[in-house]
Write a protein that binds this DNA or RNA. Sequence first.
DNA 1: AGCACGCCGACT
DNA 2: GTCGGCGTGCTC
Length: 757
Amino acid sequence: MPVPPDLFARVALDTPLTTLFDYRVQYTGHGEPPIVPGQLVQVPFGRRQVVGVVWEMTQRSEVPSQKIRSLEIAWRELPPLPADWRALMEFAARYYQRALGEVALPALPTHLRSAARWPRLLAERGARHFRLDPRGESALLASLPARAKARRRLAEGLCAAGTLDADEARALCAQAPELLHQWAAQGWVIVENTDADDYADAAAPLEVAAAPRLTDEQQAAFEAIDAALRREDAAPAPFLLHGVTGSGKTEVYLHAVAAALLHPGAQVLVLVPEINLTPQLEQVFRRRFPKETLATLHSGLAEGERARHWLAAHRGRARIVLGTRLAVLASLPHLRLIVVDEEHDPSYKQQESLRYSARDLAVWRAHQRGIPIVLGSATPSLDSWRRAQQGRYRLLTLRERASPDAVLPEVRLIDLQREGQAQRALEDGLAQPLLGAVAQRLARGQQSLLFLNRRGYAPVLACDACGWISGCPRCSAHLVLHKSERRLRCHHCGLEAAIPRACPDCGNLDLAPLGRGTQRIEETLARRFPNARIARIDADSTRRKGSAQALFDEVHAGAIDILVGTQMVAKGHDFRNVTLVGVINADAALFSHDFRAGERLFSQLMQVSGRAGRAGQPGEVLIQTRYADHPLYAALLRHDYAGFAAGQLAEREQASLPPFTHQALLRAEARALAVALEFLQTARDLGQTPELASAQVTLYDPVPMTLVRVANSERAQLLVESPSRPALQQFLSGWVARLRDTKTAARWYLEVDPLDI
DNA sequence: AGCACGCCGACT
DNA sequence: GTCGGCGTGCTC
């Protein structure tokens, strides 16, 4: 009898080490592969047992044979993670310069990363038939401790009968389903008809509720997407759906989703920027599509629920997956359409661990699968806008608000310079015309929304006498006064302190809050309008789970007259009775060092303006500013995104900024700034050695970050730039490989396509 | 990244 | 005498 060749599984594990790890796999006999790529496995790794993903199978290993351990536990009942998911992980790892396992494993819900939880996740799914694999019989019986009577009864019953169904098994042992799934992971038991029912109803036609008629513009946009859905020959160019708030982008999405789901078993991925927006959109989708077809994925779900929804997507049961950026990493074997709502939103970029852009990965994913993707926004990112101008994306435009009685709001500026050299004309930051407009809405029984992107009472507390200010001891930032919680808080490191009664330096009792946050505006309004019902929505007032929804519900129910809020209120919510939007302090962003500040401000103001006047009532937007002739405001008054974008793009091109160049940042932090800077300087020197240097790639000098110190660690960064993305990518991969071998006390990471520099 | 092993200070 | 500080070395 011929000796079977060796067989190894090459497994991705969650470690920064860039290699795959080889494990020996036993043949099972009949020639069928015992383990396949994409399977989840548990393997010994050093002292511990860890979960990994099998990436490939091989008959040869480079690793010395005595080091190789055996793979025993595999989640054989779970369909393997599909090839396109693995390709996405490979791309993300390559693009963001991380180890494969560092990308692939965090993409899974944590419950799937603990083999101890697999049996229960499987047992939840109800009745099954279990068959003994005769080759597993002795191992199974040997694995049982003498005292485990019930388990032994079950094992012996199974060995005697050969097969058991779930009820018979449960009669022998109460935990039968879990145990049998556990034994299946060991390869001793085969679970039958696991997937037969998973896809059964996925192929049945979907019942879609009646949809409203589309406007001509919506119809044209839908038809373009629908045509792309029908063509199967080539990967369609991404669609950029540009439509002002209220123009009915959502209805276009819904029609496109319905069209995509006409394909039996097809799946659709819908991304939204923030958790807050999922319940609202979820409701819209639930009204249109059968409940059981929809699964949500976001970090607000309990872990068990997240695992179940993820598995529903992976098994093809969930036809519509609605979620935040992490949903782009889900396994969706029958994906046919992707929608990215508010594609410009910075929340799509993860700002920790793997710093990926969900929007960019979604575009890659659609291209790789050859399916349509719709990027929707009232104020597209300049990146996407430029691609549309170049013809690389297909632009679909909705010029008008969908409902004929909803007209664009009138945007006016309140010129604070003219309003008064007189600071007195400002009542605690609120100009008289704005207060007058609020009073008018109160009289008419309409709602007002005041937008201020700064939470807390005041951004800093200061001593009039000696000039002391409330600095954070651990960060180069101010402690923010939170009056209602009676605390000083650092918004960067989370440090909290009591409000001092007197100046810590000179003992002066007059400590003055400087500047204004949402709490202070709320207080001013309460004083000025004692009978008005005022609510504040920001990260502080919505800390408890569900409280954001509760506050929004109150606003919708008309129980609130004046709503004060940060950008949380700007996104997505339709406030039917809001006819006034006031923007309190937007100017700061006009002169920011960050070249994207203007782009962000414009889209924020455009978005918050869109809250005004939606249900047949004309809306008014009042913006307080000291720079009334700034071109950004001029464009805003005209509702002229295209004009604004053209201006910005011209400036960016002139200055060779993104999207006309591509960037990456190497960031380092250490207890002492010098250590971080020194590491970056070494990295820069390394990058300029002939072996790595490229004529197309520029390395700038290491510089301290604007906010140097956060939580007692000092930070610096080094900018890398290239007009060519491939050249940048090639440089980065060689560079990072060398950096990994560099010894340093600094913590460092690379950020590709940074949003703020 | 974990998680070991390993070799020097203040404590029951 | 040992509990524990974090230096360096490995994980198929």
